[in-house]
Simulated scan of single mutants.
Amino acid sequence: MSQRVLVAGVGMAPFVPLSARDSAASLAGRAIRSVLEDARIDFDLVDQVFCSCVHNEAGSAEQVLAQIGLTGIPIFSISDGCVSASSAFQLARNSVLSGEVECALALGFERMPVGISNRAFFGLDEMSVQDWGSADYASRPTAFLERRQHPAALFAAQTSWLLTRMAIAESSFERVISHARAQARCNPFAVTNRSSDRDDWLAPYLCPPACGAAAVLLCTPAFIARYGARGGIAVLASVRSSDTACEQESANVLDVLGRAATRRVAQQAYERAGLGADEIEVVELHDQSVGDFMVCSAALGLCEEDQIDTFVHERRNARGAQIAVCPSGGLLGRGHAPGATGLAQIAELVWQLRGTAPAGQLNGARTALQHSAALGRSVSVTILQRT
């Protein structure tokens, strides 16, 4: 069993709007070629491939890999909603960690179906008219699962809760959005640099859906030494969890969207990495909404919930040290391509730790955290460190 997993290389294709004509193969091919070039190895050294994609047909992984070369290695295809890319990463890591392989590729790509709209992406075209507050609805065990079929309604409820129940200032919402857009303007991979089309509906507190691709190559230290691959970044921890019944019984929209699960997973990740939240210097969290940015910042331990307003404006942790949260622009700025987003976050963090980030470079950063969530049903946290 390997005692350590290293990131040998990362690659990404720019995120593009839903209306773009880029094919899944072209997006994925660009990410694959860039990750191999970054790692300085050939594809025939890869032992396994874990592909994530939400909106493509069976066999799409083989189709995109054919342009690099089908070598007969195992290819695993994953469709797991917004955490698909993180699922691919964690499975690839576990394969290397177990000693089954020395080098595994995690590839995520997304090409939305032609004609899909922002409204459809967020479930607004099938908006539920159910009264979520009714006693009958709230008492049913599957009620919280049904809520997740209508994410736009959930995010609207999240925003209302933060404004009215937690007294978060409206200026804090505006600050998160303006910061995300400013960071994205410096990021050559951000969808917001390629389209001003918000479908005449997309609420300002929601991230823009996108198409795109990203890839991460994981390997053992022995592989690095043998083939001269890049290395330099270690995966200290990668933890995942799902709902618990008690967290959902309160019917609190913040927990339906993953607040409680994020707290649990983050704590487990910190323990496995041997670190505290105040030692994290740069974060890419799953800010599918402005509310997600606020709630998850607190749930990850970057601040207390009653300090969200201050944290949004100052971005300082409990020790008073500056922390970069979503320097890439995050989902709110770079865009959200479900099959690729988790791996895109990892790529952005690796660039940060190397000192080569295309946007929002934090000088001297050594430890980073990536967070993914699928409307609360699954949450993952990965901690990386420059060796």
Rank of each mutant, 00 (worst) to 15 (best):
E249V: 05
E249R: 11
A251T: 15
V256Y: 10
G258F: 00
R259N: 04
R259E: 12
A260Y: 03
A261W: 00
T262W: 04
R264G: 01
Q267T: 11
Q267F: 10
Q267Y: 04
Q268F: 04
A269K: 06
Y270L: 05
E271Y: 03
E271P: 03
R272L: 15
G274E: 15
G274Y: 10
L275F: 01
G276I: 02
A277V: 00
A277W: 01
D278I: 05
D278P: 05
E281A: 08
E281C: 09
V283A: 10
H286G: 05
D287M: 06
Q288D: 14
Q288I: 11
V290K: 09
G291M: 05
D292R: 01
D292N: 12
D292H: 07
F293R: 10
C296G: 09
C296Q: 11
S297M: 06
S297N: 06
A299K: 08
L300I: 10
L302E: 12
L302S: 08
C303F: 02
C303P: 14
E304V: 02
E304H: 12
D306T: 06
D306S: 13
Q307C: 11
Q307I: 02
F311N: 14
F311E: 11
V312K: 08
V312H: 07
R316H: 01
G320V: 13
G320D: 10
A321L: 15
I323S: 01
V325P: 10
V325D: 13
V325K: 08
C326V: 00
P327S: 06
S328E: 11
G330I: 00
G330E: 00
G330Y: 00
L331W: 01
G333D: 00
G333E: 01
G333F: 03
R334A: 07
H336C: 14
G339Y: 06
T341N: 03
T341S: 15
Q345Y: 03
I346T: 15
I346D: 09
A347W: 01
E348A: 13
E348T: 01
L349Y: 04
Q352R: 07
L353A: 09
L353M: 08
R354H: 07
R354Q: 12
R354Y: 01
G355W: 00
G355F: 00
T356W: 02
T356H: 05
P358V: 08
A359S: 15
G360M: 11
Q361M: 07
Q361L: 08
L362K: 15
L362R: 15
G364C: 13
G364L: 06
A368E: 03
S372N: 04
S372K: 00
A374C: 11
L375V: 12
R377A: 13
R377L: 09
R377E: 10
S378C: 07
S378K: 03
V379N: 02
V381G: 07
I383G: 03
